[in-house]
C-alpha cells in the first residue's frame, strides 16, 4: 500500500503528463498558455507534496517560486505579448494535431521503455514519476521542434523545463543544487521571453510606422 501523499504525487505527475499532451492539441496560443499554467501548478503541487512527505523544507520554497513565476508571472507575460503586440493567435505547426498526438503517445511509450528499468533507483518510491518526467521533457522538445512561432517555442521550452524539474524531484527530491538550477532555468526563460517581447515590439512598431506611411499615400 503506497502512502497517500505518494499516491497524490503520482496523480499530480499524471496531471503534468495530461497537460503536456493537451498542449499538443491547442491551436490557439492563449489556450496553450493556459494549459501551461495548469501544468506548472501541478508541478508546484508535486514539489509541495514531496516537501511534505520527505520533510524537505527547501522544496516548499521551490514550489512557491514555481507558483509565482511559472503559474502567474510567465503566463501573464506571454498573454501580454500576445495581446499587446497583436501576434496572430493561431499556433502554426509543422505536424498536424493528430500526428502530434500520436507522436506524444510514442514519446511516452519510449520513455516508459527506456526509463522503466531505472525508475526504482529514483529516491521517490513512485515508479511512475520518472518515466512521466522524461516523457514531458520529450514532449516539450517536440513542441519546440514542431511549432513555428517563437512564442510557441518558448512554451515548448517551458514545458521541457517542467519536465526537467519533475525529473529532478524524482531523482533527488530537490536538494539545494536543484533549487539553484530551477531558479537559473526560470531566469533564462524570463530572459528569452523578454528578448522576444522586445524584438516583437520593435517589429510591431516598425509595422505601425509603415502602415501609417502607406496611409498617407492615399
Amino acid at each position: 500500500m503506497t502512502p497517500l501523499p505518494v499516491q497524490a504525487l503520482d496523480i499530480a505527475a499524471a496531471v503534468v503528463l495530461v497537460t503536456a499532451w493537451v498542449s499538443l492539441l491547442h491551436r490557439r496560443i492563449e489556450a496553450l498558455v493556459d494549459t501551461y499554467a495548469i501544468q506548472s501548478a501541478a508541478v508546484a503541487l508535486t514539489a509541495g507534496l514531496v516537501a511534505y512527505e520527505y520533510r524537505a523544507p527547501d522544496l516548499y520554497l521551490l514550489a512557491g517560486l514555481t507558483v509565482a513565476v511559472n503559474v502567474v508571472a510567465l503566463p501573464g507575460l506571454l498573454r501580454r505579448v500576445v495581446r499587446v503586440l497583436g501576434v496572430p493567435r493561431m499556433v502554426n505547426m509543422y505536424a498536424s494535431v493528430r500526428e502530434s498526438a500520436l507522436i506524444g503517445l510514442a514519446l511516452l511509450l519510449l520513455s516508459v521503455w527506456v526509463v522503466g528499468p531505472i525508475a526504482p533507483f529514483a529516491e521517490i518510491p513512485s515508479a511512475g514519476l520518472l518515466p512521466i518526467a522524461v516523457a514531458v521533457v520529450l514532449i516539450g522538445f517536440f513542441l519546440l521542434v514542431s511549432r513555428r512561432k517563437a512564442i510557441t517555442q518558448v512554451v515548448g521550452l517551458l514545458v521541457m523545463n517542467n519536465g526537467v524539474f519533475l525529473a529532478g524531484i524524482a531523482l533527488t527530491y530537490g536538494l539545494g543544487l536543484l533549487v539553484e538550477l530551477g531558479l537559473a532555468a526560470n531566469l533564462l526563460v524570463l530572459a528569452i521571453v523578454a528578448r522576444i517581447f522586445l524584438q516583437r515590439m520593435k517589429e510591431s512598431f516598425d509595422h505601425v510606422d509603415a502602415d501609417a506611411l502607406r496611409a498617407l499615400e492615399g
Binding site: V22, L25, V97, A101, L102, V112, I132
Partner: peptide, 25 residues
Amino acid sequence: FRVADLLTLAAVFAFGSLALAYVIG
C-alpha cells in the same frame, strides 16, 4: 474535422493509461 483530433487525443490518453499501468503495476 477537429473531432478527429479530439478522438485521437482521447485514444492517446487511453493507450497512455495502459502503458502507465504497466510501469506502475
